[in-house]
């Protein structure tokens, strides 16, 4: 697996990058605004960005899906296909979400919707099976498993509590 390097860019955002096998530096800058900037450098000049695209939140998700996502995504996809009626979704916690800052216990997602948070992805790192004391933060991606209705309720409480 490619080795990701994370660099803080104070005042701008966070940069995550790696060297591709062909020797090109490739990475993403997560900007303060929530947009992402995807960039790649030519192998002849790893210092200079040769190509970059600005992506909105939605577009980043679409692109991540198209790229085939992380290994958890693949295995969960596989699972949801095998169990009928079971739905899985990846919900991003917006910075305005009332649940941001609450622990899983305080948010009572399970007792209110029947759906379960099976993993949280923060800054690209997965936290599988987060405990009740796990604190939900803005920009986390929660992997939620349940009935399709349960999941749409989770989406609702993420937005408006």
């Amino acid at each position: 697996m490619a080795e990701l390097t994370e660099t803080s860019l104070p005042g701008v955002g966070v940069r995550v990058e790696f060297m591709s096998e062909e020797g090109q530096r490739v990475g993403v800058v997560r900007l303060k605004s929530g947009d992402r900037e995807l960039f790649a450098c030519a192998s002849s000049d790893p210092d200079t960005v040769a190509f970059n695209v600005r992506l909105s939140d939605d577009e980043s998700h679409a692109l991540a899906d198209a790229l085939g996502g992380s290994s958890i995504v693949e295995s969960l996809d596989d699972m949801s296909q095998r169990i009928e009626g079971l739905a899985i979704d990846w919900l991003t916690v917006s910075s305005a979400s009332p649940l941001a800052g609450m622990t899983i216990d305080e948010a009572r997602v399970r007792s209110r919707t029947g759906a379960t948070i099976v993993a949280a992805i923060r800054h690209g790192t997965a936290h599988p099976a987060p405990g009740p004391e796990f604190e939900i933060a803005a920009a986390d991606v929660l992997v939620v498993v349940g009935t399709p209705e349960g999941i749409s309720e989770v989406r609702h409480i993420l937005k408006s509590g």
């Binding site: 660099t7 803080s8 860019l9 104070p10 005042g11 701008v12 955002g13 940069r15 990058e17 530096r25 990475g27 800058v29 900007l31 900037e37 960039f39 450098c41 790893p46 210092d47 200079t48 960005v49 970059n52």
Partner: peptide, 23 residues
């Protein structure tokens, strides 16, 4: 910060150094 964003320089190798100087 605006310049780095506008010119797409946020991915450049020297950018963290520039920002560290600002800090």
């Amino acid at each position: 910060a605006k310049l780095l964003n506008d010119l797409g320089w946020t991915g450049n190798r020297e950018t963290p150094v520039v920002l560290a100087i600002l800090v």
